Amino acid sequence: MLSTPQFPLLRLPLVALRHTLRMMGPSEVFLLTLFFKRVRVVAQSIFPRTKPSFYVDYCGEQKVGVLYARFPPKLNIPILKINFRTKKEEFLKKWKIDGEKFRYNTKFWKILQTHFSRVFPKTGAPHVAVTVDTMSKVPKSEKVELIEVKESKNRILKTSEVEKFVEIYNPILIYVHPQMEGELSDKSCLLTCENLLISYSRHFSRQNFLNFSGKYLLLQNTILTSEDLKIFLETWHKGTDRHLKVVYVFGNTNFEKEKILEGFDWK
């Protein structure tokens, strides 16, 4: 039986190694950088114009989290899988990173993020997607700037659970897809987030609206009225805090434009 020929990748001259790595996919190159220092040096010059995000999807039905390189606008390239039940990786079997076998813990999560930023110098904001069942699986020391909360098939999401999760990471953007149970407090950390998007915002009260201090707000399925929007607009116009740049509000009824803008010279 003939043996399978092996390609001496790591023994190639630097120029040849660079050309070879360019023909590979980003996920393969990233994995090689974890294990081989020589590849790390070359890889930094392979993707100078790309800007992927360190995106981890913790929403797997089989208790599996997947690390992706997310390329704009919506291309997700899987790099690594983590099984929450066994706490074992599925793409790094028998391999070692910096002399140690990979373990699902804070230390190696930092290593992954560090290597990711080296391979892709223009890295986008770190992004995680979670359900209420997997919030506890995200390492508390992980750098997270974008949080996406998705629906769980097991139980209803509570507003307090989202608030506690957000307080840990202090992200710049929060996108909550499922309906939340419970009211937001007047001093909720969600109201200070720079970018807040809520798909089912029936719990979002007038006072919450007035207390929002971020830059971008999107509310869908709201119960806010034209009167609420008018009061908000008047308060914002009279105030000195002009951080707010964009507001999108979508309700189940049509808003009265004339009533909302009454008293404003908007023509």
Rank of each mutant, 00 (worst) to 15 (best):
residue 197 L to N: 09
residue 203 H to M: 10
residue 218 L to E: 14
residue 189 C to T: 15
residue 188 S to D: 12
residue 211 N to H: 11
residue 212 F to C: 03
residue 218 L to F: 13
residue 223 I to A: 07
residue 214 G to T: 09
residue 201 S to H: 03
residue 193 C to P: 04
residue 233 L to Q: 00
residue 208 N to A: 06
residue 185 S to D: 15
residue 215 K to M: 12
residue 204 F to Q: 02
residue 186 D to N: 10
residue 225 T to W: 04
residue 204 F to E: 02
residue 235 T to M: 01
residue 197 L to K: 11
residue 189 C to P: 15
residue 187 K to V: 08
residue 235 T to D: 05
residue 198 I to M: 12
residue 203 H to D: 04
residue 183 E to T: 12
residue 193 C to Y: 06
residue 207 Q to S: 08
residue 191 L to R: 02
residue 199 S to G: 05
residue 199 S to I: 09
residue 220 Q to P: 06
residue 219 L to Y: 08
residue 220 Q to V: 07
residue 231 I to F: 00
residue 215 K to D: 10
residue 209 F to W: 05
residue 211 N to Q: 09
residue 221 N to G: 08
residue 202 R to E: 15
residue 212 F to G: 04
residue 218 L to D: 14
residue 202 R to M: 12
residue 184 L to S: 11
residue 219 L to K: 05
residue 189 C to G: 11
residue 223 I to Q: 11
residue 232 F to G: 02
residue 205 S to F: 04
residue 194 E to P: 02
residue 227 E to R: 09
residue 207 Q to A: 05
residue 208 N to S: 10
residue 201 S to Q: 05
residue 186 D to E: 15
residue 194 E to T: 12
residue 192 T to E: 13
residue 196 L to P: 06
residue 183 E to D: 15
residue 183 E to G: 08
residue 202 R to Q: 14
residue 235 T to C: 02
residue 234 E to P: 00
residue 213 S to T: 14
residue 185 S to G: 15
residue 234 E to G: 01
residue 197 L to T: 07
residue 205 S to Q: 06
residue 213 S to K: 15
residue 188 S to N: 10
residue 183 E to Y: 13
residue 189 C to H: 15
residue 215 K to R: 15
residue 206 R to Y: 07
residue 200 Y to L: 06
residue 185 S to R: 15
residue 202 R to D: 13
residue 216 Y to H: 13
residue 211 N to W: 07
residue 202 R to I: 05
residue 211 N to F: 04
residue 217 L to T: 04
residue 207 Q to H: 08
residue 191 L to I: 03
residue 184 L to G: 10
residue 211 N to T: 06
residue 218 L to Q: 14
residue 187 K to H: 14
residue 209 F to D: 04
residue 229 L to T: 00
residue 229 L to H: 00
residue 233 L to F: 06
residue 227 E to P: 01
residue 225 T to I: 05
